[in-house]
Design a protein around this nucleic acid. Structure first.
Length: 414
DNA sequence: TCTGGGGTCCTAGGACCC
DNA sequence: TCTGGGGTCCTAGGACCC
């Protein structure tokens, strides 16, 4: 049996822990990062049932003494990077999952630093001593099991899963701890009396596939037996880039829709251009006042990265979606996403277009001049910042419920 | 002020081609 | 002429993760 060399390291209640680090008077107290919506809650707040994503009002009901604190987003980025860098001091095989979470494979460095458990202890100690933050670590033979181990280790703990006792560890745990089992899958499994990973493992793959679908059935059955073939992937690039904006309740009106889509298109397209990438498929989402949402998408003949073109395509798609739902009078969110992303091998390339092409390449003939205009805007922003120039930021103004700093933290490397 | 923002992956039906 | 199978792409929706 191969030794357990995969580490999963996960900073505990990350944003809230950073706030408590920066302001000692917050330590030991229930705090929430955010305002209108809870972005993160300290363990003291979690004890009252406060959770990330929860409306601020609901959180205050659950925990009357909850303290809301503003986000130090630059600090989150800096400390998150520093914690992941500690893993990098042991091995280059580090796979970062998010701002506060990463896998590492230490198989190649035990001769230098000792057993995986020794390394895990060293990582936890260094993050605590050098950064002042609690971090939980799971150590196991596979990524899935290491991740589950770190969840079990929380808060501020270490769990090492002996390869000889993997299934004994795994099978008594609830299915909800598995990667890919959310509320819906959990409920469907519960209907069939499947509550633990062991009960899932004891169910035939065909039955699980009938309950959750073919792919999920096969995947979860494998994971329940700790057959997880995934290796560490050191650099992963995003396959799509998007932006969304919650609007509260706004009437279906060009005066709302157009400036919002402009702004969103600007965010997405400038990110793409910054990495010399562009995407062929444009998807919009419209969420109505009752929170039901619809999507519309189109795959273009040529990839886009120009703000104006993306905005026009998005407007057409949103108009089509609204036409299909004439009964809806109010919208609560608009989103744009670009997928089928590729590198721009040669940016200057502009093919002469026939009339037919114009249908599937909206605005492409005007692409050249817009590209020049976008580059000018990008350059000004490089020097003076994002707000220095651009579309529609005025129109969105105060309605932005989440600071831009938080949005940037969530962006994946393109 | 009743629900944020950025992503990944899967399913299913229809169009289209061989 | 009718029937059928297989593959691929596109679109809409949804579950899930951080």
């Amino acid at each position: 049996m191969a030794p357990a060399t995969i580490l999963h390291a996960d900073l505990d209640a990350f944003y809230a822990s950073v706030e408590q680090l920066l302001d000692p008077s917050l330590r030991g107290r229930p705090i929430a990062v955010g305002g209108g919506v809870v972005l993160a809650a300290s363990y003291e707040a979690k004890a009252f049932g406060v959770r990330g994503g929860m409306a601020g009002r609901r959180a205050r009901e659950l925990c009357p003494h909850l303290i809301f604190v503003g986000g130090h987003f630059k600090e989150y980025q800096r400390l998150g990077d520093a914690a992941i860098a500690v893993l990098g001091d042991f091995t280059p095989l580090v796979e970062r999952i998010s701002i506060d979470e990463a896998f590492a494979d230490v198989a190649g460095c035990t001769h230098l630093f000792g057993s995986p458990e020794t390394i895990a202890r060293a990582v936890r100690r260094r993050v605590r001593d050098e950064l002042g933050l609690p971090i939980s670590v799971g150590v196991a033979r596979t990524k899935h099991l290491a991740k589950i181990a770190s969840q079990v280790a929380k808060p501020d703990g270490l769990v090492v899963v002996d390869p000889a006792a993997e299934l004994a560890f795994l099978h008594h745990l609830p299915v909800a701890l598995m990667w890919g089992v959310g509320p819906v899958a959990q409920a469907r499994l519960a209907e069939r009396g499947i509550a633990t990973i062991g009960q899932l493992a004891a169910t035939s793959p065909a039955s699980v596939a009938r309950i959750l679908g073919k792919a999920a059935g096969e995947k979860l059955t494998a994971l329940a037996w700790n057959r997880d073939p995934r290796a560490i992937v050191t650099q992963r690039r995003a396959h799509s880039a998007g932006a969304q904006s919650a609007l509260g309740r706004k009437p279906v009106d060009d005066l709302v829709v157009r400036p919002t889509l402009r702004h969103l298109a600007d965010r997405v397209a400038s990110r793409l251009r910054a990495r010399s990438r562009s995407g062929r498929t444009v998807t919009v989402r419209v969420r109505f006042a009752d929170l039901r949402s619809v999507t519309r998408s189109i795959s273009l003949a040529a990839p886009v990265a120009a703000t104006a073109i993306l905005a026009e395509v998005a407007e057409d798609l949103v108009r089509a979606a609204l036409r299909d739902h004439p009964e809806e009078r109010e919208i609560s969110l608009l989103a744009i996403s670009v997928s089928e992303i590729e590198d721009d091998a040669c940016l200057q390339l502009e093919f002469p277009l026939g009339l037919d092409d114009e249908k599937r390449r909206p605005g492409a003939r005007r692409g050249r001049s817009r590209f020049v205009a976008d580059r000018a805007v990008d350059k000004i922003r490089d020097r003076f910042g994002w707000e220095a120039v651009g579309y529609a930021s005025v129109a969105l103004g105060r309605s932005r419920s989440v600071p831009d700093g938080f949005r940037e933290l969530a962006e994946k490397e393109l």
